[in-house]
Write a protein that binds this DNA or RNA. Structure first.
Lengths: 205, 205
DNA sequence: GTCTATATGTGGATAGAC
DNA sequence: GTCTATCCACATATAGAC
């Protein structure tokens, strides 16, 4: 629908194309779908191209390699929640609602969950990405929970590093379990854990 | 070293070969190693054969396909602990020591952990295996914990299905975390969780 | 920007000799 | 039981036309 002429390669100044154009967006949608089915290795560039409605080489014009496609996809979809700013025990409530939200986008959840385990291999294209992402999330949670120690909401002898590992491990493990078998209430299970943890964090009265 | 003649295909009656011969055993050892690195899909039959010291076709004489190799490996290595017979809250202590033991065999732990997520895909050769194995473990834990309800050790309103999901999800999640980064004490983290859970299971005094 | 054609590699599995 | 030789499907990526 663009009537004015435009030189190839020129960045276009309209909303619809602000992030790189229709085709590129369609490829990312297709990549999310196909990568989420069986991870990076099981997916082929051709199948993603087909799902996006372009040829394989049309795809490779926008992303120079399969690896670059995955990394761009992660950078674009795996955004940290920008409203994650609770501190102290309120972090636990925030985690509950974030977990609940993540299950409203099962395809993205499945993509991220599968990639984490697949990326255990050091030669996996997302190995460093997952490692850094985990470390960032960990440090952020420890820091924000830690502010609850300062104001006496959390007992001073709490080992927040261990508890944050528990939180992150459980989110990952429950996601796997839920992706395998959706007839249990993963949010209720997570909330059960958060109650147990809260009881363990509160100072003795 | 077998001096007596032996017809091909005849089952041999000696200890060293009770389970199928040296070559077969060497192939299973190699398969455990290679599959544990990056899962089923990333492994090639040729690389397993090379690690076992046979040709690819020598391997395929013993296992008719890559898929059969994985399934045989799982059937042979993923044995349930035969001394898992605790009941009530003692199940939690048993789980702690089982988890600790599993980390003494990091290669097997890595194999099993990676396969679980990889097998989320319905066309994965181990999909049904993992599904059934999880269900069996789940039912067994619920049953043995449940006997603690009968004798008043565990509060009668406990939701053991949810708590067993937490246990299994956490074991998987902590395994992933530990395989990524071995400089934290995964057993201490698991024990911390088990203490929280125990406090939540005990009847109000 | 998107395509056809193709280079190049690697995978799993079969046939048949020894 | 183990090997060599080979087949065939499929994968990623490049070259170049339009």
């Amino acid at each position: 629908m663009t009537l004015a002429p435009r030189r190839p390669g020129t960045p276009r100044g309209r909303d619809a194309v602000r992030k790189g154009g229709r085709t590129r967006a369609a490829i990312l949608v297709a990549a999310e779908k196909v990568f989420s089915e069986g991870g990076y290795r099981a997916a082929s560039v051709a199948s993603i191209a087909e799902a996006a409605g372009v040829s394989q080489q049309g795809l490779l014009y926008h992303f120079p390699s399969k690896e670059a496609l995955l990394l761009n996809l992660l950078a674009e979809r795996d955004r940290p929640a920008d409203d994650a700013d609770a501190t102290g025990l309120a972090v636990l409530d925030e985690l509950s609602s974030q977990f609940s939200s993540s299950m409203q986008a099962p395809e993205l959840l499945r993509l991220l969950t599968i990639i984490v385990s697949e990326a255990l291999a050091e030669d996996h294209p997302a190995h460093l990405y997952v490692r850094n992402r985990s470390a960032d999330v960990h440090a952020d949670l420890v820091e924000r929970l830690g502010r609850g120690v300062a104001d006496g909401q959390i007992r001073p002898d709490a080992d927040l590093d261990i508890d944050v590992v528990l939180i992150r491990a459980l989110i990952n493990g429950l996601s796997v379990e839920w992706l395998f078998n959706q007839d249990f209430d993963a949010v209720a299970a997570f909330d059960r854990f958060l109650r147990l943890l809260r009881d363990g964090l509160q100072p003795p009265q």
